[in-house]
Simulated scan of single mutants.
Amino acid sequence: MSRRWVAAWVVAAATVVTALLLTAVGDPVQLMTPRPDTGGSRPAPPPPLPTTAVTPSRAFPTGTGEPLGPLSPFVALIVQIVAVLAIVVVLGVIIAFIRSVWRRPQLVARAAADFVTPEVPDELLAASQEQLALLVEGEPRNAIVAAWLSLETAAAATGLPREPAETSTEYTTRVLHSWDIDPRSLADLATLYREARFSRHALTEEHRRRAMRDLTTLHEDLRRVATEATGAPTT
């Protein structure tokens, strides 16, 4: 329920309750307006009929303009019950309205997360020599593909979870970005792998040299991170 509707319900319920309370505790209401006194003499009443009139056991208002008497106890009780119920409904609506207006999301202050860079797995460091050896053998296309696949295998051996929608290349890139490495060298090496894997044009020795520079920079960065973490040189 929107705030506009809640406000409308509050006003309507308050109006009804006020009317009921005034009816229950107010002065008697005259149902007929008294006839004005014209100051003249009233006509004489007609003579009684010859038949004997039956006197009713209970008198009812005869429309002479006299006000009705007080409400009966049963009607007064019904009015009071209705008034109490209406007050309860109004209070409930008012409480709901106040809660809807003043409700605000509770923001809990939390301390900044303390993220610790994981140690470089031995699998990544141990496979560096194998990847460089694969990169210098055979045609540039096959050498680049073989070196990158070896890098993917080493990244998977770290045990870091892989997202369902990730390709093997995306997974390897994300794993290696867990450490402080040169992002440009890694991006260029991944680009060379895609070009060697999916393109049809010939790859040259220049592509091999680019891949060699990128892979060497990657290995040096991983060794540096491992050395900083352990405080001892890593071979």
Rank of each mutant, 00 (worst) to 15 (best):
I144A: 05
S199Q: 14
G39N: 06
S41K: 06
V93C: 06
G26W: 02
P233S: 08
G65E: 10
L189W: 05
T38E: 07
L215M: 11
V136M: 03
R194Y: 05
I94H: 11
L192I: 01
A143D: 01
S41I: 01
V108E: 12
T235N: 08
H201W: 13
E220A: 09
E130G: 08
D188R: 15
R213I: 08
D214Y: 00
T217N: 06
V29I: 13
T173M: 11
R103D: 10
R141T: 08
V93Q: 01
G63P: 06
R209N: 05
W102T: 12
A154T: 02
P73N: 02
A165T: 14
T55C: 00
I81H: 08
P36V: 14
L20S: 08
A156G: 05
L31P: 00
P140H: 07
T51W: 11
D214C: 13
A19E: 04
L91M: 09
A59S: 10
V11P: 00
V6H: 09
T172I: 02
A44Y: 05
P43Y: 02
T169W: 11
A96M: 05
E228H: 09
E152D: 07
P61N: 09
T158S: 14
A7I: 06
I94S: 10
E205H: 01
R208E: 04
Y193R: 15
V175N: 01
R194Q: 12
T191F: 12
F115M: 03
G92C: 06
S57G: 13
N142I: 03
P233G: 03
T52S: 03
D37R: 12
V29Q: 13
L125N: 04
F97R: 12
A226F: 08
R213C: 04
L149D: 07
R104W: 07
A165N: 13
A86K: 02
Q131L: 12
V82D: 00
R141V: 06
L160I: 13
S41P: 12
E139S: 15
A127Y: 01
P73S: 11
P43A: 05
A59M: 12
E152H: 14
L134Y: 07
P47L: 14
A226C: 05
T52Q: 09
L192R: 04
G26T: 05
T158D: 04
R210G: 02
L151I: 01
L85M: 11
D27I: 03
W9R: 13
I144R: 10
H201N: 01
T38I: 04
T23G: 10
P105I: 02
T191D: 11
T230H: 13
L176P: 00
R4L: 15
R42T: 05
L107P: 10
R4S: 15
Q80T: 04
R208P: 00
A232I: 15
A96Q: 06
A13G: 11
A190W: 00
T38Y: 02
L77A: 14
R110Q: 14
A187G: 02
L151F: 01
